[in-house]
């Protein structure tokens, strides 16, 4: 079922071949496409797949937070996902958004989650079946489960984490990490007041964990990145963050399921919260020259 049996939890990763073989078992599995581009699903998708959009489905439109347990249950029920359904996520950008959607499912206590290695691109490149029609499934019954707070970090927790000198992985680009880039072109009002990173964080841009074809790199290469180079040690309590918590959920997946770290938290407030917060210290390595 998995590609690299040496991963800590190879059972969480399935191949495109596995999905092709099992996709018709819609009573057992629900394939979910989660993309950055809100229209991509409509251009064609795995025939059995439903779409879950990170902005329109998973985020609360008013509170800066995810939808609550009741609305999460509604969303699942609508797509025919019951508490027992195994959800198989895939998406664009090397599964960036698929990992994010999976993180929100795990946060809501949905345990049975898989990722299709290589994501949408690999499926399309292999010329596997694509359909434009949205499949309809009978509504399921979904009972809100207990939340799983262990995978989410809030700012105060990150502050204590930082003071305790515990490891943090900043998954943004080197320019964002150094503080060279503080806001995006033409959008100063949506940027961050200060550039830099949380003191003590190590910079490992998220995409370094994926190979050219969009699949996750083999375990030895991941160990080189996160252990040899970023200095994580087995058993570490780790916080991952980015700008708004989506790229870092990809790294959360890699650290948790591929490398076997048992205490990884995604700090979804990330730099847009920390960089703007009163009293939050930063480190800036960029020197304007």
């Amino acid at each position: 079922m998995a590609n690299d049996p040496t991963y800590a939890h190879p059972e969480v990763l399935v191949s495109t071949e596995w999905v092709e073989k099992n996709r018709s078992q819609t009573d057992k599995y629900r394939i979910v496409e989660s993309d950055e581009d809100v229209l991509l699903y409509s251009t064609g998708h795995i025939p059995e797949a439903v779409k879950i959009d990170w902005i329109n489905d998973l985020n609360d439109p008013v509170v800066r937070d995810y939808i609550d347990g009741d609305r999460f249950a509604e969303l699942c029920a609508k797509h025919g996902i019951s508490n027992d359904t195994t959800v198989v996520f895939y998406g664009d950008k090397s599964n960036w958004w698929a990992c994010y959607a999976m993180w929100v499912f795990k946060l809501n206590g949905h345990d049975k989650c898989l990722i299709m290695d290589g994501g949408r691109k690999k499926w399309v490149d292999e010329m596997k079946p694509i359909a434009k029609e949205t499949p309809k499934y009978p509504a399921a019954t979904y009972t809100p489960a207990a939340k799983n707070p262990a995978i989410r970090a809030f700012k105060d927790q990150v502050l204590s984490h930082m003071k305790a000198k515990k490891p943090m992985i900043d998954v943004r680009s080197p320019q964002e990490f150094s503080g060279e880039r503080t806001h995006m072109a033409e959008y100063p009002q949506e940027g961050v007041l200060r550039g830099g990173h949380i003191p003590g964080a190590k910079n490992v841009p998220w995409a370094k964990s994926v190979a050219e074809n969009g699949t996750f790199k083999p375990r030895p290469e991941l160990e080189k990145l996160y252990l040899s180079e970023a200095g994580l040690k087995p058993g570490d309590d780790v916080v991952a963050y980015c700008r708004i918590g989506e790229r870092s959920s990809h790294t959360w997946f890699v650290l948790t399921y591929l490398l076997g770290f048992e205490q990884v938290k995604n700090y979804d407030g990330s730099w847009t919260e920390w960089g703007n917060s009163v009293g939050a210290p930063i480190e800036k390595t960029y020197k304007p020259g």
Binding site: E36, D37, V38, W54, I55, N56, M184, A185, E186, Y187, E190
Partner: peptide, 12 residues
């Protein structure tokens, strides 16, 4: 419906 990073590109 369009995320911010995308909006930046569109604005450019």
């Amino acid at each position: 419906q369009i995320r911010m990073n995308r909006a930046v590109g569109l604005s450019a």
